[in-house]
């Protein structure tokens, strides 16, 4: 462990490598976390199936790849498919939990997560997969830092997607209706907004965002049916650390988490990468408690 830290100081360019990798993967975490913040903030549903949506999007891209559809091209297709999937889930299940107590939505989405991961396992098997994009790699600092071109592309796509969603929320009628509903559902209803439709759209939009994030994950990283859980936890860590409705916070926390994972993976060993995510969850929860205690409040 100390050797690895030593290595980081001896070869500063390694830091660049880790920071870049963290940035690229963190951008994807931001997408999924933003989706969670959206459903949480608007309809008060804590979606535990967040990571499974991501992985499902990845598998859809991988599947389309077997028909020779390039992952970048499959991104819009997957987003649309996952939008539809989200809508169906809303009508079948989520509709009934929006107004119920917190644990109902948590457990119901947990059930969804279980179904999705197991169905993926049945369909694709437990092997670890990557959607081949066929781009080369670039070297920097005389070969010390190598970055696959696809990671740059993925980062650009993530930024584009995030910007698109933000503009949509600000400018479009539906985006405004969503924001109005999140502030006061009853007032929104009185003003003639069809909140039922807003909820369905929000949940579906979250599905699309996660699906797109999943395509990016499958291009630059790996997917496996059971890799959804850490993605869900990441989203929760990010949203909890940032607080609801704090978009810059979500971006910072997401990128930070991506880098933290890269560093811990390098310093402690790859087997600790998962432990880092979970460990950070506990740390963030404790930190939030201390913060709230100063306001004479609890974390709820």
């Amino acid at each position: 462990m100390l050797d690895n830290i030593n290595l980081l100081t001896l070869a500063p360019s390694l830091n660049v490598q880790l920071l870049l990798d963290g940035l690229f993967i963190g951008a994807i975490f931001v997408l999924a976390a933003y989706g969670l913040a959206l459903v949480w903030g608007v309809m008060n549903v804590k979606n535990l199936a967040q990571g499974e949506f991501v992985i499902m999007g990845g598998y859809l891209a991988w599947h389309l790849g077997t028909y020779n559809v390039h992952p970048i091209l499959s991104l819009p297709i997957v987003a649309i498919l996952m939008f539809g999937f989200g809508w169906v889930l809303y009508v079948a299940i989520i509709k009934y939990v929006v107004t119920r107590d917190l644990f109902t939505s948590l457990l119901a989405t947990f059930g969804i997560a279980l179904v999705v991961q197991q169905a993926l396992n049945l369909a694709y098997g437990p092997e670890v997969r990557t959607a081949e994009s066929g781009f080369g790699t670039r070297s920097f600092f005389g070969g010390l830092v190598t970055v696959a071109e696809i990671k740059f592309i993925s980062f650009a796509l993530a930024v584009l997607l995030a910007a698109g969603v933000i503009v949509f929320m600000k400018k479009s009628r539906m985006g405004q209706a969503i924001r109005a509903t999140s502030q006061d559902p009853r007032a929104a209803k009185v003003m003639g907004i069809n909140t039922e439709k807003v909820y369905a759209f929000t949940y579906a939009l979250n599905g699309a965002i996660c699906g797109a994030a999943g395509v990016l994950v499958s291009m630059i990283w790996v997917i496996q049916p059971f890799y959804g859980v850490p993605h869900s936890i990441r989203s929760f860590v990010i949203v909890t650390a940032a607080g609801l409705g704090n978009l810059p916070g979500v971006i910072l926390a997401g990128l930070g988490l991506g880098m933290a994972e890269q560093y811990s993976g390098f310093v402690l060993g790859a087997q600790f990468q998962q432990a880092t995510v979970v460990g950070l969850l506990v740390v963030v929860l404790v930190w939030r408690q201390i913060q709230m205690a100063q306001h004479r409040q609890v974390v709820k």
Partner: peptide, 19 residues
């Protein structure tokens, strides 16, 4: 953990088991 309420408690305890 018991300073946490509702969903935070559920997810926090899940985190404990996973860690």
């Amino acid at each position: 953990m018991f300073g946490l309420r509702g969903p935070y408690f559920a997810i926090g305890t899940l985190g404990i088991a996973l860690s």
